[in-house]
Design a protein around this nucleic acid. Structure first.
Length: 219
DNA sequence: CACTGGATGCCCT
DNA sequence: GGGCATCCAGTGA
């Protein structure tokens, strides 16, 4: 009985996650993720850069031509599923969007650390923006393991916080083609990468265009 | 700052 | 055995 309210709250949160990841296009959800918070154990960080991958028609997506293997099976699961794959020895964190069976997802490319920064520095053997300004770097910094692949967000230690006083709103959302997608025609140039304009933790953000006062967030 | 090449682990053919 | 949704240190302006 005592746990009833707690369980109800958990179910509410879960249906919020479901809603969030299947309301709107994957491009729209990618932009809504900017300023939301990832929590993993003692680590908290703001999402500042995302990329949309659009399923079976997208030449750059792992699910291109409805390609399904053991490695990418998470893509075909429920919205809010965690998809992690490793490449060149680095883990990459993705969230699944759209109803089950539609293999679209969002790659988290960069975050701005909020808590656990000392531990991140120890883990990464570096400081500053290099802690988390890339998809492999942020998984290393937050120590996100492959074992979370195919798990649901918020059902393990890895949470996504959709509404909190710590969430921020970008002053301006920048777009570009996705990184590392060469020679794929319109899928190379399509503006499917989204970032908080002026945030120093965005990958390849020129030092010159950094907003030193607000890091690209609304006040 | 822009560009380069080597290291790297794991999945797939 | 190849390819990759990367990272880093090195070079040369």
């Amino acid at each position: 009985m005592l746990s009833f309210k707690g369980e109800r709250d958990e179910m509410l949160k879960q249906s919020n996650i479901d809603q969030f990841f299947q309301t709107g296009t994957t491009q729209e959800i990618s932009q809504k993720l900017l300023g939301k918070i990832i929590v993993y154990h003692q680590f908290k960080a703001l999402i500042v850069e995302t990329e949309a991958y659009l399923g079976q028609n997208d030449q750059a997506a792992h699910a291109f031509r409805n390609h399904k293997t053991h490695r990418n099976r998470a893509l075909f699961m429920r919205p809010g599923t965690i998809y992690i794959f490793s490449m060149y020895g680095h883990n990459m964190l993705n969230f699944i969007t759209q109803p089950q069976g539609t293999p679209e997802g969002i790659l988290i490319r960069a975050v701005q650390p909020l808590t656990g920064i000392a531990e991140m520095q120890k883990q990464r053997h570096t400081t500053g923006v290099n802690l988390t300004n890339g998809p492999g770097k942020l998984c290393d910094a937050l120590q996100i393991p492959m074992s979370l692949n195919t798990k649901m967000l918020n059902q393990t230690a890895l949470k996504l916080v959709l509404s909190s006083p710590l969430n921020r709103t970008p002053s301006k959302i920048g777009t570009s083609g996705r990184i590392g997608v060469p020679h794929k025609g319109k899928w190379t140039t399509a503006p499917l990468r989204y970032f908080v304009s002026g945030n120093p933790y965005v990958s390849k953000m020129p030092r010159k265009s950094v907003d030193h006062q607000f890091n690209g967030w609304q006040k």
